[in-house]
Write a protein that binds this DNA or RNA. Structure first.
Lengths: 342, 342
DNA sequence: CTGAAAGCGCTTACAG
DNA sequence: CTGAAAGCGCTTACAG
C-alpha cells in the first residue's frame, strides 16, 4: 500500500501538502494539486484510516450497543441498524456492533479502548446504568429510547403517546368501547421499567380516562408463543374486550393464532391492531393486520445525525419523537352486537 | 485517559515493559509486574486500541459486508450478525457492518482504508465480483455462502442438499408424491445465480429424480406479499401439488395467508414445510409450521473462527456446511385421498 | 528481565 | 501556498 510519503516523493512535495489535498483542508495551487492527484492515482493511494485516527484523535467509528442476549432484535430493530449503518457510511463513518449485555462494566471497558467517537444506545431503560457510564467517560452518545428524565440528553424515540392514540382512535371510531392493550412484561429482568412498555401503558390509560372507558392492560413476554397464550388469557379474563392493541411483532402473530385456536374470529369477534410492527406484517397474516408501523428506518437516520452533530461540536439536535404510518388492514371492524357509530 | 507513558512513569519502568505486561508478551519479574499492575489500576489505564492497531499493523476489526439494499435481512440474518459479533468480541475483535451494495468498487474503497483485518462476505453469488476484489487486495476473507467454484476459498454455508432432502423426506414419508419447491426469483438483478436458490433447486431436482417424482419448482420474489401471490399461482397451475417446501421467512407466512384466502386448508389440502426459517416461526402461524431451521447462529460463529484462523496464519479451517434442526409442526399431514404409507 | 529508540502513517500547529 | 517537524500512543526488534 502506497503511503503519503510515497505520494509526496513522486509529486515532489511534502507529505503535509499531500495531506492538505487529500483532506481538502488548506488551499493548494492548482498545479501542485494536479501533480499530487496524478501521483495518487498512479500509486493507487488510499489514506490509512488508522493512522489518520491516531493523529487526528478521531476514529470516525460509531458504536451501536444493544443487549442482544436479553432483547431479540425485531424487524424494525434490523431496519434501525441497517439505516444507522448506512447513514454513518454516507458521512464517512463506520458503525461497529456491540452486542453487550445491559451491564455497565463491559460497556465502560469497550468505550475505554478509544475505538469509537460516539455511541448509540439501544433498548434504553427508564433508569439505565449505561447512561452514567457514558457520561463519566465523557463519551458522546445518543439514546434510542429515553430514560425517565432525559432532559439534557440526546435521544430519538418512538412517539408512544401518539402511536397508541392512533391505534385506539381507530378502534374507537369504528365503535369499540371495550379496548385492551397488550403490552410487555416488566417482570422479565432486563425489561424492568423498560421505556416502551411504561410509556405505552401510560398513554393508554390517559386516553382511556379522556374517553371514559375502562382500560384493560395485559402484560406478556415477547414472542409468538406468549402471544398465543395471552390470547387465551384475554378470552378468559376479559371476554368483553372487543378491540385489542398489541405491541410486538412476534407476539401479535401468536395472538392471532391463539385467538383462532380459541374459536374467536378476527375481526368479527375481536378487532386487532398491531402497534409498531413492520409494514410487511399485514401480508403475513390472515386477515391482513391493521398496522401502525414502526419508524425504525427514520430513527436510525436521526440517531446518527444527532450523534454526528454532537461530535461536530455544533448545537445539539433537539430530541425527536416519531410515529409510524397507520396502515388499515382487515383485522379491525365494528364490534359484535353494536352498530358502528355514524 | 492515562497512557502507557503515564503508567511507566508511575511504576518507574519503561513503556516497553508496560507493553510487555499489558500484552503478556514477554516475561517480567513478579515484582515489577505487580508495580505496573498497581499503577494501571490507580490510573485507570486502558490501552488505546487505535495506537496499538497502527503500531502492530492489525486493527482487530472485522467487516461484515452485506448488500442491504438488495437483500432484506431475515431473522436468521440477524442471528448470524449477532452471533458473529459476539464470537468476534470473545476473541477481542470488533465487527463493523458495511451495508454496501453488491458492487466491487465500493468494497475495494472500504477495504483500502485499512480499517479491517478481514472480511465476512454475506449473500454470495455463484459468480461474485467481490471475491476477485478481495483477492487482489490481498485481504483475508470468508464467504457466507459460496461461489460456483469455491475450492481454495474459505467458506461456511448452509447444507442445502441435506436441508432440502430432510424437508422432502418428511413429506414423502407421510405419503406425498406431488411435491413442489417454492424457491426465489433469480430474475431479480441481485439474485441472479444466487447460490441458495440454485443449490436448493438442484438438490430438489436430484431428489425428485431419485424418488421418481415430477419436480414442480415455482419461483417468487422474497416477501410476504409475494408469498401470498405464489399461493394463488400454485393452486391454479399445480392444483395436484399436495406438499410444498418453501424457502424464506416472510414468504412462507404470506403463502399460508394466500392458501387460506384461496380456500385451501393446511394441512388437510396442502402440507407446507418452511425451509431454513427461524425456529420461532412455528409459533407465529396457524397451524404451527413444520420447520427446518436456519443455522444462522452456528454459521456466524464458524465464519468468524475461520477468518480468525486465516488471520493467525495457521492452517485454514475446512469449509463447513450446516443444516438446521427439523422441527415437526402441524402444517404437514398425509395428502388428501391417500392413505399414509405404512 | 528491562530499556532506549525507531517506527507505524498520518495531522497539525508553526514558520516562512 | 508549502514545508520541516513534532506528535498521536502504542509495538517491537535490538542491546545489554
Amino acid at each position: 500500500m502506497a503511503t503519503m510519503r510515497d505520494v509526496a516523493e513522486r509529486a515532489g512535495v511534502s507529505i503535509a501538502t499531500v495531506s492538505f489535498v487529500v483532506n481538502n483542508t488548506k488551499p493548494v495551487t492548482d498545479s501542485t494539486r494536479k501533480r499530487i492527484e496524478e501521483a495518487m492515482a498512479e500509486l493507487g493511494f488510499r489514506r490509512n484510516s488508522v493512522a489518520r485516527a491516531l493523529a487526528s484523535r478521531q476514529t470516525r467509528i460509531l458504536a451501536l450497543v444493544y443487549p442482544a442476549l436479553e432483547h431479540h432484535l425485531s424487524t424494525s430493530g434490523i431496519e434501525f441498524i441497517t439505516s444507522a449503518a448506512r447513514e454513518a457510511r454516507s458521512n464517512d463513518y463506520h458503525l461497529v456492533v456491540w452486542p453487550v449485555s445491559n451491564d455497565a462494566a463491559e460497556l465502560a471497558d469497550l468505550v475505554g479502548q478509544g475505538l469509537v467517537d460516539g455511541v448509540l444506545l439501544m433498548e434504553v431503560q427508564l433508569a439505565d446504568p449505561r447512561v452514567g457510564v457514558l457520561q463519566s467517560l465523557d463519551s458522546p452518545f445518543v439514546l434510542i429510547g429515553r430514560t425517565a428524565e432525559p432532559s439534557g440528553l440526546d435521544y430519538v424515540d418512538i412517539d408512544f403517546d401518539e402511536s397508541i392514540r392512533r391505534c385506539v382512535d381507530h378502534l374507537w371510531d369504528v365503535g369499540h368501547r371495550n379496548i385492551a392493550l397488550i403490552s410487555g412484561d416488566q417482570r422479565v429482568p432486563s425489561f424492568e421499567r423498560y421505556g416502551p412498555y411504561v410509556r405505552m401503558e401510560d398513554a393508554f390509560r390517559r386516553i382511556a380516562a379522556e374517553r371514559h372507558f375502562e382500560p384493560v392492560v395485559l402484560n406478556t413476554r415477547s414472542g409468538a408463543k406468549y402471544g398465543r397464550e395471552i390470547a387465551l388469557e384475554l378470552s378468559r379474563t376479559h371476554p368483553q374486550a372487543s378491540g385489542v392493541v398489541i405491541f410486538g411483532e412476534p407476539t401479535v402473530t401468536g395472538l392471532l393464532a391463539g385467538l383462532r385456536a380459541a374459536g374467536r374470529r378476527v375481526p368479527d369477534d375481536v378487532s386487532v391492531v398491531a402497534a409498531l410492527a413492520a409494514a410487511d406484517i399485514a401480508y403475513t397474516t390472515d386477515p391482513p393486520l391493521t398496522t401502525l408501523t414502526s419508524p425504525g428506518v427514520e430513527l436510525g437516520q436521526l440517531a446518527v445525525r444527532a450523534l454526528l452533530r454532537r461530535l461536530s461540536g455544533g448545537e445539539p439536535l433537539p430530541p425527536e419523537l416519531r410515529c409510524g404510518e397507520f396502515l388499515p388492514g382487515e383485522s379491525t371492524a365494528a364490534p359484535p352486537h353494536v352498530a358502528p357509530s355514524a
